[in-house]
Design a protein around this nucleic acid. Sequence first.
DNA 1: TCTGGGGTCCTAGGACCC
DNA 2: TCTGGGGTCCTAGGACCC
Length: 415
Amino acid sequence: MKYALVDCNTFYASCEKVFRPDLKNKPVIVLSNNDGCVVAMSREAKALGIPRGIPLFKVESHIKKYDIAVFSSNYTLYHDLSSRVMNILRNFASELEIYSIDEAFLILGGESQDDIARLIRGTVMTWTGIPVSVGIGPTKTLAKAANKVAKKRPEGYFDFSSSDSRLFLKELEVGDIWGIGRQYQAFLNRNGIFTALQLTQQSDSWVKKNLTMVGLRTKWELEGKPSIDMEQAPPPKKGILSSKSFSYPVTDLLDLMEAAADYGTTATEKLRKQKSVCRYVNISVSTNYFRQGDRQYSNAATIELAVPSAYPPDIISAARRGLEQIYRKGFKYKKITVYLTGIEDENRGQLDLFLKEDPRKYRVMESVDRINRKYGRNTVNCMNIRETSHWQMKREQLSPRYTTNWNELPLISAG
DNA sequence: TCTGGGGTCCTAGGACCC
DNA sequence: TCTGGGGTCCTAGGACCC
């Protein structure tokens, strides 16, 4: 059995280029929420040496000098193109795991691996305009590592089994292994372990003791023993959060209340979408820790609901009660998070009681969800959220919703 | 002036039970 | 002076991922 990892190259930047042929071979960067920092770059922008995660204001001069195209993140567009890519990949796999917005694991059939990799790349490019890389290996971890190699090759694919496995592992640095982050990399380096090959030479018990069971599975995967399952249907989320940074410091409790209502609504929509209810509402606020001179404060509160619910007014009033507990006057708040936990299926015991108590609540919410899906987010909302509140997101370089809004379809002109 | 958002899993330690 | 053993549940914190 063979695993493939298909990864969209510089996904957000590639999405922005699909409808802008004038940007072909030009550097493109995509910003985080609030246009804060650089989260994605086209190949050309990477070549200019811009590091991922750098704040926008630090690269303004580069942008002017090299005429870099800058975009606010347009998740409506990225999610739509992502689902088109995933639907294509489904045709090539006996099993498909959508791992993230721009990556999927596939279990391949018996065809020649080179042929299938070429076919996948060609089809996705022709049908969506998105370039992808294909890594193939006997485990998910090795397919991931093969994908890293694929990205550096002009063919855009690489099969682990076509290489000398000992040499491959020797050239793979521990920090580049899927599942080994910065802390573990530093720890392993301190212990004289720098390559995947060296990691596989440690005993299972040593790896488990120092890198937990997760690290031990990674070791087995590097040895070619599949130890991480495919997840075809994503399990329901165990925690759902909605959190945003403010574009300007917020001091007023009423503004925070409004933001809590907005993000509480967003989180609750996600909750209803997976047909769940939650028992706990956790709300947290913090000041801007990047501002060294400011007085800093952060705090969180968890409110338990009387009955598990996915009804926005229940969630929002809990969030507001929590906020009243933790709000302190005189701080400049930067960020607020609403986090829903204690998630259960909506059909479980306790809820029956609730539905008997007031089934109208759920009928109201079904209608609201329908209207908002049709006419846009916040067409109907619970707390009179203003369109122009100053705590809302900054998105000054937003591209059109080319694929999801009739008024923003790309126009083609003849001649 | 300007520094993202949304998740998962694991472990240690404390409270509590018999 | 002597001060068990085994278990569950919960939370906080730390690691990881994109």
